[in-house]
């Protein structure tokens, strides 16, 4: 749902087109609106979190054209035409993404506020194919702060999914 209807937007608003979680959206966006605020306030997709608004915590991590990015550092207008995947688009209860399942199984969160960012980051990390060891997972996940301190469980969850995807790869070969 939207809290900000078209009338409350200033004349500076510009039209852009985004594919958000598989759905094409034509939006009017003021040039100073961040992708994070657009998602949360205009699109009602509050799964992407705001922890700092300064690119320092990773809570706002989403996938932009498949790559992880801090959406608080991205002005929405510059992503005209992009494909955005948020936590809501990764999977929903009853049909969760394996990474979401693994986070639950390994208790990789407590308060849950950093979790959408962690999971988006983790999904991208697996796709990047760079992390093979726990140490590498830790390093490449260090842009996502978890104040509840679930780090060891987050690494367990990612390792679990990495294991599955390499098993899958082996099975396919």
């Amino acid at each position: 749902m939207s809290s900000q209807d078209a009338q409350s937007l200033s004349p500076a608003a510009v039209p852009i087109r985004l594919t958000i979680n598989g759905t094409e959206r034509r939006l009017q966006v003021e040039p100073w609106t961040t992708l994070l605020d657009l998602l949360r306030e205009q699109e009602g997709l509050t799964g992407s979190k705001k922890g700092c608004d300064h690119g320092q915590c990773g809570a706002c991590t989403v996938l932009i054209d498949g790559k992880r990015a801090n959406s608080c550092l991205v002005l929405a207008v510059v992503k005209d035409g992009a494909e955005i995947t948020t936590i809501e688009g990764l999977g929903q209860p009853g049909n969760l993404h394996p990474m979401q399942e693994a986070f639950i199984e390994h208790d990789a969160f407590q308060c849950g506020y950093c979790t959408p960012g962690q999971i988006c980051s983790a999904v991208a990390l697996v796709q990047e194919g760079r992390a093979h060891t726990r140490e590498e997972i830790r390093e490449y996940m260090s842009g996502n702060i978890c104040r509840c301190g679930a780090y060891t469980n987050i690494v367990d969850a990612i390792e679990d999914v990495l294991g599955q995807s390499s098993t899958l790869r082996e099975a396919a070969e």
């Binding site: 749902m1 939207s2 809290s3 949360r40 009602g44 997709l45 509050t46 799964g47 992407s48 979190k49 705001k50 948020t86 936590i87 809501e88 990764l90 999977g91 929903q92 209860p93 009853g94 969760l96 979401q100 986070f103 639950i104 199984e105 208790d107 969160f109 849950g112 506020y113 979790t115 959408p116 999971i119």
Partner: peptide
């Protein structure tokens, strides 16, 4: 035991204080 609020928290369905809306907000 797995957290019963787990599925909501991992899918963006858990709403925190600043994530509620109203038409006159």
């Amino acid at each position: 035991t797995r957290r019963v609020d787990g599925p909501l928290k991992v899918s963006g369905g858990a709403r925190y204080a600043g994530e509620y809306f109203a038409d006159d907000l």
